[in-house]
Simulated scan of single mutants.
Amino acid sequence: MDILALRPVPAAAVLMAITRRCPLRCGHCSTGSLPGSEEHPGEIFQRFAGTFTPADRPELVMLTGGEPLLRPRLARSLAETAARSGTRTMILSGMFFAPRIPASIAGAIEAADHFSASLDAFHEEEVPRKSVFAVMRALLARGKDLSFHLTGSGPDDPYLRDVTAEIRREFHDRIPMLVGRVRPVGRARAGAPALLPAPAAGNAATVTGSGVAPALPCVMAAWPTVGFDGTITACCNQDVVDHRPVPGHLRLGHAGADDWSTVRERCLTSGTLRALRTYGPLRLAGAPPGRGYCETCRELEVTPPPHTPAAAFLERRVRDMQLAGGGVGFAGRYGCPPYGDLVSLGHPGRKHDL
């Protein structure tokens, strides 16, 4: 819940996809990762983390992939480097090593401040649920801060009802869950239609009756993302992270050449990114009916509006409204709405029983 509460804050965190390799072949994989997928020298990521300072650092580094724990020494080193500046680290894993925790992986998990396990019907074809639970029980007994990342086809998916209920019983509501939906990216794009949720009514391509594109702020343009090759983008959309060249307005630099201070400054001061976070790409582009939200953003070729006092006020207002919703509000808007409250499980600030 604390991590998600930071999501609207520009440059509050940075995501690092430290490898594209993964030993699993889940049918919904957003990155399309394989055992032989690309991987770049760890020095690129280590160099970038080494530019964090106590006075200028992200609050959080989230290590992802592929499968980040295929590089346990790098994951541990990044967590230890980040900690020296006061930055906390989270690792998201597909749990390929379950039910046992090899010593090198245990060291990486121990060095991180938070550990999250991916679990869904597709992962369970590769790693049994009972094996994932065995690892999480062992880590919980050691006092580790934990969460589950769950994915399903939508609010009515029976798998989500089953797995969330079992996690609550098994761990006595001590481990929070972020529940999301399968997106049409990576292998899921080419997979069977049954993998994907039905389109939601009133989606981002809708325009108002006046023909003017609605203002739909993009919270995802807030956290820089270090891709597999070290390229740093302004959002974690997989089509942006994977494809080269990156659209100019979404490229923040490279981990092998730029430091955190430079990347943070670009994230905070870019007129286009500020407008995306305030109005969203549809309004910024004046998109016609039927245009997709992220597709419109990737193809933007517009001059951002001037940064006037009124624009600065609106920017702060939008950010404050998003912050007011906290982590639960973010999970409800961008995850699977009926399950949004599950991110508060185990949190001392939870206000009510679920």
Rank of each mutant, 00 (worst) to 15 (best):
T89S: 11
T89Y: 04
T89F: 04
T89L: 06
T89C: 11
T89M: 09
M90V: 13
M90H: 11
M90F: 02
M90K: 13
M90N: 11
M90A: 13
I91E: 02
I91C: 02
I91M: 03
L92Y: 01
L92D: 06
L92E: 09
L92F: 08
S93N: 03
S93T: 15
S93L: 05
S93H: 02
G94V: 02
G94T: 05
G94C: 11
G94Y: 00
G94R: 05
M95A: 09
M95T: 05
M95I: 02
M95Y: 01
F96P: 07
F96M: 07
F96K: 05
F96Q: 05
F97R: 08
F97M: 07
F97D: 03
F97A: 05
F97K: 07
F97I: 07
F97V: 08
A98M: 06
A98L: 00
P99G: 06
P99N: 03
P99F: 01
P99H: 01
P99L: 03
R100I: 01
R100H: 10
R100F: 06
R100Q: 13
I101F: 01
I101Q: 08
I101R: 07
I101A: 03
I101L: 15
A103K: 15
A103V: 13
A103R: 15
A103I: 07
A103Q: 13
A103W: 08
S104I: 00
S104Q: 12
I105K: 12
I105V: 15
I105S: 05
I105N: 07
I105D: 03
A106I: 00
A106T: 03
A106M: 02
A106H: 11
A106G: 15
A106F: 03
A106N: 08
A106P: 09
G107T: 04
G107Q: 15
G107R: 15
G107P: 11
G107F: 00
G107W: 05
A108R: 06
A108Q: 05
A108H: 03
A108N: 05
A108S: 08
I109R: 08
I109S: 04
I109P: 12
E110V: 04
E110S: 14
E110I: 00
A111P: 14
A111K: 12
A111W: 06
A111V: 09
A111C: 12
A112C: 10
D113F: 09
D113R: 12
D113P: 14
D113E: 13
H114W: 14
H114S: 07
H114K: 15
H114F: 15
F115K: 10
F115E: 02
F115W: 13
F115P: 11
F115Y: 14
S116T: 14
S116L: 12
S116R: 14
A117T: 05
A117H: 05
S118C: 09
S118F: 01
S118A: 14
S118T: 13
L119R: 04
L119V: 14
L119C: 14
L119A: 09
L119G: 06
L119I: 15
L119K: 04
D120M: 09
D120A: 10
D120E: 09
D120K: 12
D120R: 11
A121L: 10
A121V: 10
A121E: 10
A121S: 13
F122Q: 12
F122C: 11
